[in-house]
């Protein structure tokens, strides 16, 4: 079997499992919707003021939604022993882990991105900024899934890892939030945004290369305990 065929098989298994647990997939989307709804209620219904905050609110809500679902990334594999087999596979575990993370993004980050235009209308984000919002969210949620994968691996052996995962990962995520919201805001104000977008892409790329190594190392600790 070629490497590509193995990786395709792993990706297929992940998507199949996600489909069979599809009730869980709706939860991040609902969370996203609810946070965005609560914001105007808690702060102000004034559309002008909301438009100013829209980029930040959408970004932070989408990231939290994505992060909350990350806790489950390795959990069931850890509990049934599949994780051990994954680490003992003759295919490099970093690639297998990368497949899992990408599958996670396909079933959470991507749907969140696709939902964001609807919610951006509710927050009166300028229509011109919507395509960029989607693009930055796609990159941002991918980066978050990658970095969050490290956190999920570090906390997989703990009974209550969910909240700890958020505490560990959120500070690392400050740069992505900054450049993501800045790009969308700049687009809304008609200012250039290519630089911010390039930085976001660079961070996603860096995370793509570096985080699988840390994730596998963390998984070895969890399994080797």
């Amino acid at each position: 079997m070629t490497m590509t065929a193995i990786l395709a098989r792993v990706l297929r298994r992940e998507l199949q499992l996600a489909y069979r647990r599809r009730a869980d997939l709706v939860n991040p989307l609902l969370f996203f919707l609810i946070v965005v709804t609560l914001f105007p209620i808690g702060v102000t219904p004034d559309l002008d003021k909301l438009a100013e905050m829209a980029a930040g609110v959408l970004w932070v809500a989408a990231l939290l939604a994505n992060l909350l679902s990350l806790d489950l990334l390795f959990r069931s594999d850890f509990e049934d022993g599949s994780l051990e087999q994954l680490l003992l596979a003759s295919t490099p575990p970093t690639l297998l882990v990368l497949c899992k993370v990408i599958a996670h993004w396909l079933v959470t980050g991507l749907p969140l991105t696709l939902l964001s235009p609807v919610l951006s209308v509710m927050l009166a984000l300028p229509a011109g900024a919507v395509p960029l919002l989607m693009l930055t969210l796609a990159l941002g949620t991918l980066t978050l899934s990658l970095i969050g994968g490290v956190g999920a691996a570090l906390t997989v052996g703990l009974r209550k890892g969910g909240l700890l995962l958020t505490v560990l990962i959120m500070p690392m995520f400050v740069p992505v939030i900054i450049f993501g919201t800045a790009a969308v805001q700049a687009a809304g104000d008609g200012l250039p945004w290519a630089g911010q977008l390039a930085l976001l892409a660079a961070m996603a790329l860096g995370a793509l290369v570096l985080t699988p190594l840390a994730t596998v190392a963390a998984l070895r600790i969890a399994v080797g305990d």
């Binding site: 499992l17 049934d80 022993g81 599949s82």
Partner: peptide
């Protein structure tokens, strides 16, 4: 390696 946890995914 076949471990005590059987690595059988229930779904």
């Amino acid at each position: 390696y076949i471990a005590h946890r059987p690595a059988v995914t229930l779904l």
